[in-house]
Each structure stands twice: as structure tokens, then as C-alpha cells.
Simulated scan of single mutants.
Amino acid sequence: MKRYKRIAELDDLVRMYARDQSKSLEGKLALTLVNIEEDVPEDNEFIRNSFQADYFTVFRLRKGNSVIRLNFKDYRISPGQLVVIGPDCVRQLISLDAGSVVESVVFTIDYLNEIKLGKKNSILIHFFSYKVHRLWSLEKGEDEKMDFLFARMLEKMDHIYSDNFGFELLRICFIEYLIELNYVSLRYREKLTNRYVIREDLVAKFIQLAQTNHLVERQLSFYADKLFVTSKHLSETVKLITGKTARQYIDYLNVIEAKRLLESTALPISDISDRLSFSSPAFFTKFFHRMEHKSPREYRKRYK
């Protein structure tokens, strides 16, 4: 099983369920409104298995009930609720009722850079941080506003190539959508101070680097050199924003991937150790026990 899913792979899901209620933009932004007319097949590899992705996701339930597992914690979702999912998150759809209506907005960091939000990038996507609650309940006015903004984005996507200002109009609608999410997120996250805002850009770059390299590079100096800061400054800044030091965040990514492999594959412990670039299975076992207070074998037995 592939560890990461790319945004382009949503096309298979779109063709299967969404029909004409889904639009995508060059593998950078995808809008999907799915009416689940029947139960999701058990053998659907994209939906049923856990995976990480290279994109951000806002998953909103308009009708029905669903259970999503994020980083091995289950979230029960009802109409009027949404889930925010960052690229570092291991995700798995556990159940989705027939008759459910699901809306999703999926976008990459490349699209955020392309629309040139600058330093506001880190402010607006702070709500994807693991410090923020994943599950949000929308109030009546917020639910209606999200419906309106999603419909506008779909409309602008339809005319993106035929309208001389198609890309710009879509950009404006998408930014307005992010701003509305940001307002909702204020109920679910700590208030940002100026010092947080200034330093979040460095942390966002570190997280992007860590997500790409953590399986092969666990030395903090590697990331500090790439970001042109000292290891101490990087670690202190990451802790200020996320609550974890940079090294703890790298360990967090590794243990999440280890748990995914232990749960969803039959790979021997030695192979998992190799995939995670540990020098030996014994060192991997020691690391896993330190993080989870049980051995990899003990953890796997829970799911057998």
C-alpha cells in the first residue's frame, strides 16, 4: 500500500460517486459534493484503508452519519459538523451511511503558495495544527455561509478557463472560504499572539520538510541547516507554536507511520524497522516502546 495519496487520485473517487458535483484544478484544488446512494464498498482501497496525503482536507457532512479515524482516534460526525485534516494526519474512513451527503474541499500547499497569501498562509491554516480540535460544530449562520461559499467556488471553477478573470475570481472565493474557516476555528484553538504569527512561517516550513523527510532523516541539524537557523532556535520555535519540540514532532510522525504499518499491513517488524530507517529492529522496538509504552508486537496484537 502506498503511504501517501496525491490529490490527483481523488479523480477515481469523483468518477465513482460525485459525477458532475465535483471540480478539480490541476492537482492543486478539488471541490467535491458526494451523494452516497449506497454503502461504500468494503474493498474500496482508497476509502477503507488508512493513508497519509499531500493535501489539506475540509470534510463536511451535510446529511447522514460518518465515522472517520484520524491518527488512530475515531471521530463521529453528524450533519452540521466538519473535520479539518492536515497532510501529516493518518486518515481512514470507518463508516459512511447510505444517503449521506458529503462535501470536501481539498488543496495543496502549492496552491496556497500560488495564490500568494504570503505570511497570512500560516495564519489561515493554523487551524490544521494538531493543537486544534479536529471536529467542529457549525452554528446555523455558519452552516449556511459554508454552503454559499462552496457553491460559489464550484461556480467559479466552471468558468475558470472561459472567463478572462477566472483564476482570480476562484482565488478570491477560496480565500473567503479560508477566512470563514478561520473565524469558526477561533472557538477551537488558542488565541494567536503577534509573536506566534511572526514565527509560524518557520514552523510551517519545518513541518513541510519533516513530512517529506522524516522517514530517512531524524537528525535535527538536517532541518535546521535547510531552514538556515540553529537547532536550538528551531526546536524552541516549533515548541512555542505546536507544543512539541522539533525532535518530538519528528518522532511523532515516525510513530504514526509505524502504527499505520502495524495495523494495516502484515510486514514483519524487521521490515517496518527498515522502512522507518532504524539501524536495527531492536532500536526500533526501543523507540516504539518509549513512545507508546508497549512493544510493536503488543501493539499489533490489539488489531488481530
Rank of each mutant, 00 (worst) to 15 (best):
R300I: 03
D251I: 01
R76Y: 11
E38N: 10
R275A: 04
L61N: 01
V102R: 05
L267G: 02
A151H: 11
S280C: 08
N213D: 10
I269G: 02
H159A: 03
I47M: 15
I47A: 14
F174W: 07
W136Y: 15
G166K: 08
F51T: 05
K23P: 00
L124F: 13
Y188A: 04
A246P: 04
P281Y: 10
R260G: 02
E155A: 12
Y130A: 07
C89V: 12
G118W: 07
R199V: 00
L220I: 15
P281M: 07
K63I: 00
K304A: 07
D88V: 01
M146R: 06
S162I: 06
S22E: 04
K116T: 02
S235I: 03
L138C: 06
L227V: 09
E38G: 05
R302W: 03
K191G: 10
R76S: 13
Q248F: 01
L138M: 13
F128V: 04
H293P: 00
R189H: 07
E257H: 11
E26A: 11
Y4G: 01
Y183M: 06
K156W: 04
I160P: 03
K301D: 11
I256S: 12
S122L: 01
R195G: 00
L276N: 03
N164V: 02
Y55V: 01
V58Y: 01
N44F: 08
I36H: 08
D147S: 09
F72K: 11
I256R: 14
L10Q: 08
S66L: 07
A266S: 14
P268R: 10
L61D: 02
K63Q: 12
D97G: 05
H293R: 13
I68M: 13
F222W: 10
N121E: 13
T265A: 07
L202I: 10
L31G: 02
L253Y: 04
R290Y: 09
D271A: 10
D147M: 05
M16K: 15
I172G: 03
S273G: 04
D201T: 10
V255Y: 04
Y299A: 05
P296S: 09
I198V: 13
I115T: 03
D271V: 07
H293I: 01
I125Y: 02
R297A: 10
R19Q: 12
F283A: 12
F288T: 02
I68Y: 11
D54L: 02
K301N: 13
N113P: 00
R19C: 01
E257M: 06
E45R: 12
A224D: 06
L13Y: 13
L154A: 09
I241E: 00
K294I: 07
F46A: 08
S78K: 15
T108F: 06
T193Y: 12
F56H: 12
R300V: 02
F107D: 02
A246R: 01
